[in-house]
Design a protein around this nucleic acid. Sequence first.
DNA 1: CTGAAAGCGCTTACAG
DNA 2: CTGAAAGCGCTTACAG
Lengths: 342, 342
Amino acid sequence: MKPTVHDIAAKAGVSLATVDRVVNLRSGVREVTKARVEAAIAELGYVRDVAAANLARSRVYPLIFILPNNDNSFMQALRDEVRAAIARGPSERVDITLIEIPPFDAGALVAALEKAKKEKPAGVAFVAVEGDAVRQAVGALAGGGIATVTLVSDLSGSRRDHYAGVDNIAAGKTAASLLGRFVKNSASKVAVLAGSLMVRDHHERVDGFRSVMASEFPQLEILPVLEGRDDAATVEELVRDTFARHPDIGGIYSLGAGNRGLIRALESISQSGGRPSVIAHELSAHTTTALKAGLIDAVLNQDAGHEVRSSIRVLKARADKVGVIAAQERIRLDIFMRDNLP
Amino acid sequence: MKPTVHDIAAKAGVSLATVDRVVNLRSGVREVTKARVEAAIAELGYVRDVAAANLARSRVYPLIFILPNNDNSFMQALRDEVRAAIARGPSERVDITLIEIPPFDAGALVAALEKAKKEKPAGVAFVAVEGDAVRQAVGALAGGGIATVTLVSDLSGSRRDHYAGVDNIAAGKTAASLLGRFVKNSASKVAVLAGSLMVRDHHERVDGFRSVMASEFPQLEILPVLEGRDDAATVEELVRDTFARHPDIGGIYSLGAGNRGLIRALESISQSGGRPSVIAHELSAHTTTALKAGLIDAVLNQDAGHEVRSSIRVLKARADKVGVIAAQERIRLDIFMRDNLP
DNA sequence: CTGAAAGCGCTTACAG
DNA sequence: CTGAAAGCGCTTACAG
């Protein structure tokens, strides 16, 4: 039978309270007593029942999620997943607060992080924006013993505990490997469409894309990166304009949001000459339809649900100072084609 | 505050025992009493704390995993994941028994399923082999109220509760979509390498592959399927032999195991003329190395760890008659290229 | 058919 | 520094 605190107490000749003190590393136990308890624990192979402990202390984990209020499909999906987690909250002993802030706004993020700190939550998850002030705010949380997880976009050189998102350099490389093989032999130019190069994840995707293109497909010319601000109308205009000037574009890598605009532009283009090969990011109703219609060839995706659930597991584990199953928390880069849609 | 059994008991004017009886759908409660309790539950929005319930009843879930004893990397990984789950067992209240049987052997599987039934576990997970006797054994488990999950390979028309594995038809289609674009324009023939067409998952992959090849890449001729029995030496010989007879093969879809043999054959082939494009299944040390070396172009993979963890969650949920988060239990078809290796 | 009491494994005031 | 007792939310014999 699995040994319990009672077994340890009996073996060490102490009370339950004392066992509890050493198990939970609380102070106020003589060294000799502590040693006796630790010996009993080792001998009996005791391992604490976290569920029982949480019940006894009526533990709930107050968690704060800070997300941008973008209206693109991916961010909407991310917020929906947080709301689903809020609904599941009671049975998982988490109490999640969702805070929405303007996108790409370091100041707003810092303010939200500082406010979050005052709430003394067990952990905070947020979509990072680069900036020293952000790094400092994260440092303050870490200093206060509050666990932090960056979601979707990471924050380099910060004291965050964990990053729940994909490897964006790998994403860019993968896009290049696929696109380089998909484009017709006759093609010579490739267009790249980002939201903003000021966001770390977009920047990394471009870097990864460029590196593989340069080494594997040097014959393809990469046009200057178009920044569509993740806005469909802007994206549409940019794409139309670019095609007007470069009718020989053989491939497009769309690594940001606003794919609705891209798709609209593609629909008109495909009516004239040959259609370019297209790789986009994030599976949504729009990109799914475009995949099925053959307007997009592949979609690189990160699973918003997985990211949210993983963040919660990691924050809880950090708050309890216990480990996680690493493989389970790795966010995969999903590749969807028309044939393996969910 | 979340209402508890105490609140319900007080509100309905009954004892805790009676609340427990109606919450757990146990008999022996007068209709009027039951109605009063149910009204209180509805009014207060009571939801049972499963963790506390499990603690009170010292619940552990006895689970049985029946896996083939193949020595290929994937099955080894699957068994290792089950062993890891066994090690984690105590903290998740599961007590898992791993049973190994000969592969592709319906008789052995039936015997194992029947034996498992006698142990009265909460649930059974197994890699299915087609056969009416197997379906019958699964039916007997279902009849006995034991939850069942098919792992990796499903069993059509059976009473299993859930399938934890990828959509193999989609896998075959995806392989065709990729391979069709990867092969050189000049190529005309494609080889398909399976373990055995008697196994459902392999058969489905071939079907999916054929359908997309026929509709999208009709110019490519698919050579008769080679059955390598998931054995490296056999596979190597088959591939060498095929290349000797068809030097103009432009692509290979290896959908079974034994990729070590395929890789050895590819190494020698690539020394003479051009290298064929290759898509294989299951990420292992061998296929990873081959991806990096450029001998394999893409690997379709199913995450053994996810499959095992998901099976356990589903079996527990079924035993408790509660739901799961559907999206979390969907086993994805992972596509790995050199650039997005884990 | 219904209830009082003890217990699951752990933690928390409160005494001493 | 240490312990006895009550309690977390639920379930389980055992009485009646």
